[in-house]
Simulated scan of single mutants.
Amino acid sequence: MIVVMKVGSPEEEISRLTEEFTTWGLSPEKIVGQHKVVIGLVGETADLDEQNIQEISPWIETVLRVERPYKRASREFRHGESSQVVIPTPNGDVTIGEQFPISIVAGPCSVENEEMIVETARRVGAAGAKFLRGGAYKPRTSPYAFQGHGESALELLAAAREASGLGIITEVMDTADLEKVAEVADVVQIGARNMQNFSLLKKVGAQDKPVLLKRGMSATIDEWLMAAEYILAAGNPNVILCERGVRTFDRSYARNTLDLAVIPVLRTLTHLPIMIDPSHGTGRWEYVPAMAKAAIAAGTDSLMIEVHPNPAKALSDGPQSLTPDRFDALVKELAVIGRAVERWPEPQVALV
């Protein structure tokens, strides 16, 4: 249930209502929109009458029920407005959201050694990426495949962050590793295989770093949004949804089926920002440019693209990785689409 306040409602009245709703056993959440303030009411609201609530203050414009099972993730919860996630990085704050320029995340699947990760960070940053991706801990289908270097790789990511100024996005697989991952990561990633690891979702929800939630390989949209609800319900409002392809019946030519239709669908269902990963979504570097450009045209807020200095020798996901030179060329192509939809960041002009 949400309580929509009238434009110009006094802060004292909003505070008074928040305190009163708390005495009812509810968890009120103040949401400041572009034009209005909304108070979200979470708890047992089934027996509450909307008209009775509206009568407790002349500053209440309307009271609405949120019908979807995911309450905080629902677009209704913000009265139709989109949210944004502000992420501090060494190069300045980066905001990911529907009303902001597209942000690019780039880097290798796995952190292999210091020279490789630092050089890749410098190259993708120079091309226009805002974040470096790189796995320290890697969930793999085979127990014999490379699992990542673990904690030592986090130190290499920290070195790459210092050398490039990029924000760091890396995956956490276990609640036991969350604290040390969050010390390095600017955004904590929950991978597709852990999308419904509910104990892990609760833990990342209880810490304050933004969370990138990848869609499970066979997850429905509702299941994905309910996973996001776990994080939001635990207290962390900064969640980004990442589509990375789903498993379908035909895997002859592409690793997964990249569901770009999810972008307009999510826009109607949730206020959360959207990222598209065309690298995992296709599994072939040749297909990544087309899908990245299509994602921008469809309205994504961010892109995650795998880049490796020598894909043929990559320890994981080499076939879907662009070389730095190919990434440079792709960013130039993406800029054309991005400017056409008025979502491309303007280049920084140095002051003389």
Rank of each mutant, 00 (worst) to 15 (best):
P311S: 10
L201N: 09
W59I: 03
G125F: 01
P237Q: 12
L178W: 03
V7Q: 15
V118H: 08
E286I: 11
L232M: 12
G150M: 03
I104W: 06
P210C: 02
Q99H: 15
G25N: 11
A192W: 03
M217G: 00
A106G: 05
N197P: 07
L156P: 08
A297R: 11
A297H: 04
V265K: 03
I117E: 08
N113S: 07
D93F: 14
V336F: 11
T120L: 07
L178F: 07
Q189Y: 14
A182Y: 14
K202W: 09
G283D: 05
S110A: 14
A294F: 11
A176P: 06
T300P: 04
K71E: 15
E183D: 13
L26F: 09
A185R: 04
V172D: 11
L132N: 00
G40N: 09
S83F: 02
L260V: 13
G216Q: 02
G97W: 01
A159F: 07
K202G: 13
Q348V: 14
Q54C: 05
T170C: 10
S83Q: 11
P345N: 05
E229I: 07
A228K: 00
N236F: 12
R161N: 11
L315K: 07
I221S: 08
F77P: 00
T300S: 10
R284G: 02
P88F: 01
Q189S: 09
R343I: 05
I337Y: 13
D277I: 04
L201K: 10
A153S: 13
V32D: 13
L303E: 10
E61G: 09
R123A: 11
M217N: 05
K209S: 06
T257V: 12
P101A: 09
R267F: 09
W24A: 06
W59H: 10
A254W: 01
P264V: 00
T45I: 08
N256H: 07
G216V: 02
T220N: 03
L322N: 07
V124F: 10
F77I: 03
A219Q: 09
M304D: 08
E183F: 04
A290W: 01
E171C: 12
V85N: 02
P319G: 01
I60E: 06
L154W: 04
S252E: 12
P10D: 13
V124M: 00
Y287N: 05
E155A: 12
E29G: 12
E119Y: 04
K180I: 11
T270H: 00
A206I: 07
G97L: 01
R326M: 14
G43C: 13
A206E: 12
G125C: 08
E115A: 15
I117M: 06
R122K: 15
Q34E: 15
M5Q: 00
S9T: 15
A121M: 04
Q84V: 10
H35N: 15
E81Q: 06
G165P: 04
R161D: 12
E115D: 12
A159I: 00
E223T: 08
R123C: 10
I31L: 15
F198I: 10
D301M: 03
V111Y: 01
R122E: 14
T220M: 04
A163V: 08
V265Y: 10
M291K: 12
W24R: 07
